[in-house]
Nucleic acid binder design. Sequence first.
DNA 1: CCGTTTGGTTTATATTATAAACCGATTTAT
DNA 2: ATAAATCGGTTTATAATATAAACCAAACGG
Lengths: 96, 96
Amino acid sequence: MFKPLDPLLHSELRLAIISILLSVEEADFVYLKEQTKSTSGNLSVQIDKLSEAGYIEVKRGFVGKRTRTVCKITRVGIKAFEEYVESLKGYLNLNK
Amino acid sequence: MFKPLDPLLHSELRLAIISILLSVEEADFVYLKEQTKSTSGNLSVQIDKLSEAGYIEVKRGFVGKRTRTVCKITRVGIKAFEEYVESLKGYLNLNK
DNA sequence: CCGTTTGGTTTATATTATAAACCGATTTAT
DNA sequence: ATAAATCGGTTTATAATATAAACCAAACGG
């Protein structure tokens, strides 16, 4: 009945990050920060966690002389998200 | 876009408790423990939190000589749950 | 130069979740 | 009658998480 919820995704900020990355192909740090209205520190940490889990891919590079961190969701991340949503449905009564 | 998720409901065990109470009118401690497969300690703590927030009502009584703790969701709890689900939809892409 | 902004990371702290230990009452088994 | 196990929890300690605050190097603006 209640399947466990992937703790990596069951977090407001990380879920928002994944949600954005699902709809946008690629997003950089600044864009994610704007969209999620999070602090840089929090965003940095959560991006790392998603990256270490292999849910997203992070490329650090330059645009002109400025650094730029770009994130992209992986198939692993997509899969995990889909499973998370399925599990979550067991908790919500979406079948109203 | 990303409305904040009520932290009281954005918790696996508390969400499971609420989910059960939405479908069952009343449930006692033992039943909730069985259904959620949680430990007594964890369940006790989370029931308290939901109770203190006014999301559920807790009645402690007896059945025969044994103690019995019965939980029931309140209208406040129902409202909070509905809002939580609405907010959550903004994170999931349920509009596939 | 000097102060400020950009684009972050690191470290410290507050909050949360979870488990472990405990407790009084009640059965059950001896 | 009594010791041992079970029931129905609560309390307390610990581990994990989230969040914010402090910091940093490079770039830019005056």
